[in-house]
Design a protein around this nucleic acid. Structure first.
Length: 490
RNA sequence: GGAGGGGUGGGCGAGUGGCUAAAACCAGCAGACUGUAAAUCUGCCGCCUGAAAUGGCUACGCAGGUUCGAAUCCUGCCCCCUCCA
């Protein structure tokens, strides 16, 4: 019973939730939902009810009364006509939900007066994504080691999966047959699928790029597969993600100018082909900006994509080994020309400090494997930077990873226990570390969003960066050099 | 009692005259990881000195010996394993 009460209190007191609920009608529904909860339901039911309520409330502008009622009834809530009609007293939405979503997938809720930061909401058929947002990466239809429930508890609102990997295994048809990606992986929230453009970079040894598309040699069985822009769209329509990406060519760093130019122009032609091939109105197809580190190429890329009018834009080709200042400069060029009202996604970034720099320049979404990968390797994110749980100094440390952290791991286990799990290579260690890092980043983005709503973003940024110590550039370069040398030797 | 095999750095285990402070693997210590071919990769790992190169010392059961040079060859001793009695 205590959990239920705290859940209700959370509904009322959590600023991020109430900030989105600013009109009287929504508050009525919220209150009514709380009454239902008090009527005595199990914790599992309560969780379901809260989820449904939040969703109905935040999407009421896109739902007709009939649609809202269907959802509430499905969650087991008796529907009060008075409340429902009160909710829609102003203006019920018209047309199908899918059509309305395509028209207005993104709304800006607040803008920071002192920077380009903004807080918004991205609407999808599978729920809303408050932005700025971090998107955990689940390449093979799973965020490694954690379940969808755990993801949600950690604070995830959306996840990313990969077209290339899922096409090769288990195959888009298999997933379509099993009800689409959401059902297949048991995640009913929003999903973004990446196109395979990153694999052009990461699996460079196994592919060949031509105007028609990219020919990959499967890293699984060596078979050849031609990925054209049209094919990639087709596969993603079968997968059924809410946001999809066109095939692009992610260039490495450093990248000669002529190659950067060639790749980015090809990416533009592919974007146009993707747009033409794209059918499903409930999927938002973003445009991907390329152009490596060259400002004029980036500028050219942005302008061409904006002319094609995508519902959102992604910036790719960054965080591939370039210094941070270079990344920031490229971001500034791109963001100065992207339309204000469209969502912007930064592909493959990042670390805590990257989020602040990205948000300050106007980014809305980020996806990155960093947090989950380093977690599996024993590196845990804390306010001061990273903590390597393998270190002998934690052998007898009774403290949680981070004092005050509310993640499952920190609520239950000591550093000493986590170190023990890692030293003995117990798989629970990977899970607990992943949960913590995800929670850390997701929580950080929530805090960033709140600070934007409060108008204190820059102060928060300064405060955070004053204590957070990122990996020094010099160390990163050294390690990269070491690795390169070792590879040459073999 | 007899025959055979063997004792190498924290573990396991290569090495049979100089290229050996001694492979590989494990353990240990430290670092990295950015649209995931990642529960991965890199470095260190006898002692002392040094940022490092280097230098010094000790070392392949123990004690002697042969040799310019020995973990490696010879002699004796100690210990372990297998088989026979």
């Amino acid at each position: 019973m205590e959990n239920i009460h705290s859940a209700i209190e959370r509904l009322y007191q959590d600023e991020t939730l109430t900030a989105d609920v600013d009109d009287a009608a929504a508050k009525v529904l919220l209150h009514w939902g709380a009454e239902q909860i008090k009527a005595g339901r199990t914790e599992e039911e309560v969780r379901q009810v809260i989820r449904t309520l939040n969703r109905v409330i935040s999407r009421r502008a896109f739902l007709s009364p009939a649609e809202a009622r269907a959802r509430l009834e499905a969650a087991g809530l008796p529907v009060d006509e008075a409340v429902l009609s009160g909710l829609w007293a102003e203006a019920p939405a018209e047309g199908t939900l899918a059509e309305r979503l395509v028209r207005a997938p993104f709304e800006i809720v607040a803008e920071d007066p002192h920077s380009a930061a903004r807080a918004g909401i991205l609407h999808t058929l599978h729920g809303d994504v408050p932005t700025p947002a971090f998107i955990p990466v689940g390449t093979q239809a799973t965020v490694k080691t954690v379940s969808p429930d755990e993801l949600r508890e950690a604070g995830a609102t959306i996840v990313l999966a990969n077209t290339y990997h899922l096409y090769l295994r288990p195959g888009a048809d298999v997933i379509a047959e099993l009800g689409g990606l959401h059902r297949f992986m048991g995640w009913d929230g929003p999903i973004l699928t990446d196109s395979g453009g990153f694999q052009v970079f990461s699996l460079a040894a196994n592919r060949q790029v031509a105007e028609e598309g990219v020919t990959f040699r499967s890293h699984i069985d060596g078979s050849l597969h031609l990925f054209t822009p049209e094919k990639v769209i087709e596969v993603q329509e079968k997968l059924g993600a809410d946001i999809v990406m066109p095939l692009d060519e992610c260039t490495p760093y450093p990248c000669p100018r002529d190659y950067a130019e060639e790749a980015h122009r090809r990416t533009l032609r592919w974007a146009e082909r993707s747009r033409k091939a794209h059918r499903r109105p409930d999927q938002a197809l973003f445009g991907i900006v390329q152009g490596s580190v060259y400002p004029d190429l980036r500028q050219e890329s942005v302008e061409a994509l904006v002319a094609m009018d995508f519902p959102g834009y992604a910036i790719g080709g960054l965080s591939v080994g370039e210094p941070k200042e270079v990344m920031h400069a490229v971001l500034e060029v791109c963001l100065s020309s992207l339309p204000r009202e469209k969502p912007r996604h930064l592909l493959g970034v990042g670390s805590p400090e990257d989020f602040f720099e990205g948000v300050a320049r106007g980014m809305d979404m980020f996806d990155c494997v960093l947090a989950t990968r380093i977690a599996r390797h024993g590196s845990l994110l804390v306010r001061e930077g990273r903590l390597n749980i393998h270190n002998a100094s934690y052998t007898r440390d009774p403290r949680p990873i981070e004092e005050g952290c509310t993640c499952y791991t920190c609520r239950h286990f000591s550093r000493a226990y986590l170190r023990h799990l890692f030293q003995s290579q117990e798989i629970l260690g990977l899970r607990l570390a992943t949960l913590h890092n995800l929670h850390f980043l997701l929580r950080l983005l929530e805090d960033i969003r709140r600070s934007i709503l409060n108008g204190t973003f820059l102060a928060f940024k300064e405060e955070f960066l004053s204590t957070f110590r990122p990996v020094p550039e010099e160390v990163r370069q050294n390690e990269a050099a070491h690795r390169r040398r070792a590879r040459l030797r073999s």
